[in-house]
Design a protein around this nucleic acid. Sequence first.
DNA 1: CGTCCGCATGTGAGCGGTCACAGTTCCTCA
DNA 2: TGAGGAACTGTGACCGCTCACATGCGGACG
Lengths: 340, 340
Amino acid sequence: MAPTKRWPERPPVMTDVARLAGVSHQTVSRVLNDHPNVRPQTRENVLAAISQLGYRPNAAARTLVTRRTHTLGVISFDTTLYGPASMLYGIEAAAQDSYFVAIASLPALDRGSVLEAVDRFVGQGVEGIIVIAPLTSAVAALSDCAGDVPLVAVGCGTHAPLTSVAVDNAEGAALATRYLLELGHETVHHIAGPRSWLDAYERIAGWRQALQEEQAPEPAILPGDWSAASGYEIGHQIAGEQDVTAVLCANDHMALGLLRALSEHGRRVPDDISVVGFDDVPESAYFLPPLTTVRQNFGELGRRALGALVDMIHGRDPAGSLEPVAPRLVIRSSTGPPRS
Amino acid sequence: MAPTKRWPERPPVMTDVARLAGVSHQTVSRVLNDHPNVRPQTRENVLAAISQLGYRPNAAARTLVTRRTHTLGVISFDTTLYGPASMLYGIEAAAQDSYFVAIASLPALDRGSVLEAVDRFVGQGVEGIIVIAPLTSAVAALSDCAGDVPLVAVGCGTHAPLTSVAVDNAEGAALATRYLLELGHETVHHIAGPRSWLDAYERIAGWRQALQEEQAPEPAILPGDWSAASGYEIGHQIAGEQDVTAVLCANDHMALGLLRALSEHGRRVPDDISVVGFDDVPESAYFLPPLTTVRQNFGELGRRALGALVDMIHGRDPAGSLEPVAPRLVIRSSTGPPRS
DNA sequence: CGTCCGCATGTGAGCGGTCACAGTTCCTCA
DNA sequence: TGAGGAACTGTGACCGCTCACATGCGGACG
């Protein structure tokens, strides 16, 4: 009786199952991995032993030899925001039955934090990483460690030298701008997001291009910071300017703030001013008035990011999943022709 | 020249480092784990060898022998919603430097899905699980597998036989109800969430109790489903009823829908009707009018859940982290005394 | 009737770390 | 000067699994 066995309750291992089923550990392994060439009767015996013992294979041991962790890492900025949260959801939903998804939400997207997060994940042995990194600073940092591990950036435009999927922001902004111009507005003002965000940058570009194509004058950009508060403040500034008849906001929250400011100044939407948002958060249909906005399919974006990553993990070319997701203009009651 | 070595590029292992540093693998291990009794010079040699080789310890191998994965699982319903997303964020932020956080978002919280998710995580070897499970159905399922692995439920009230942390929903609802009553309203109507959600249930209870304490009549509950759409529909129904002067909504989104419906019917807020929300989503300060609401500190909730879980993992009594998080009434402009 | 092949199963060697224990070396102090 | 101990380092077993290979068995075939 060597006192080899530790107590209490060492969980059963493969050998225990093998002993109970009267076979070798290897046969148990074969059953577990659905190998052919196991007699049905044997398989059943093994299965019975497994459930009798409540045996669960040890993931670490398996990983050690197969070198597969079945784990993906998702690095994100603020997962509280609607966009990142939706992408995360899409990714997780799509990954569910082939991978575990580990997350890291960073308080800031500076070079150091991003690299540290990547490093942490690599150390843990993730098979791939998805970075929800809308900031230009992050893109730069990422380019360095690419190659170290399969990595896909999402919502980063296509500027980067790294694999990335994105919504076609420029097209979305252009869509909205053209729509307003076609309604008869002289021009369209733009409350933009911070320039350090690629999305903000691209939306500006799309807006500007649409303006140029229609030969409309290009007013100065109104710089917001994504928050409703910034939209509200800018709203106060422009409420008095009679030549502002149409505003494209770079996201729905700023539009909400704008709506409130305009209402406080007695300027009616859409009679006096038309307002368009971006994102189509679920609540925007219930703003006052319901918001015309550019819908982004975040879930689809997440799904494509995962698809591309899985391609890379298996050494395939992810090109197929990479084309930008098309945005769609959702017309509600916050837009209309200018009064004039 | 035995062709033992596989190519391409087998990553360096501890023995490689040991060889380069001229020590044994055990000494390398000691350096890695900050053991005392390693000569400074030796330590430096090892460290140099590590960085020269770009060596990273293999997590699976370590896990295999230490039986620690440093991984936590978070199971959640819809991580797109503000509440769950915030909790997740709080949990992750607090866990960051001691654990990896894996997530599983379920499309439904039925018994089967929950148990399956738990099982998946246990199979992967997580050291503990946090379930963001606001539905009563989930609580029941969870009670079964408790004991199998350290598990904390969050946002489940305290009804369950399992360890859980929660916001004091009843107190929040009572707070809002009493406030409206004190303003002079005869009674307070309540747009509730689905009864299957514990939060909805508890908010109803708090509202009802406050009503009883002040001996106010108790109107029929208006059944919503958390969505702005449901608030909007109910708004249409009650807009015509002159005796409705104050409404407590079980969340901010339904309040938003209600606000829009009332506005469409020409009923002014707060002059004709006072409206209170629940949650204090970031946008609620920019609703029209800005919404009086009950703030929940989701981040704190997540942090406490993690604290309790870590206590359990280490065999400590988590009692300390368990007391409900106090909600706070945030008064804005959607409430006022009745016109009478 | 012996050979060969395919199925079913067993054997032993790792995977890359940590742990327990067994040496070393070197310094202290009688 | 030598015993004793602390500081430092090395050795081998083992964690629980999969892989490559060896083996036993039965039937098809010439």
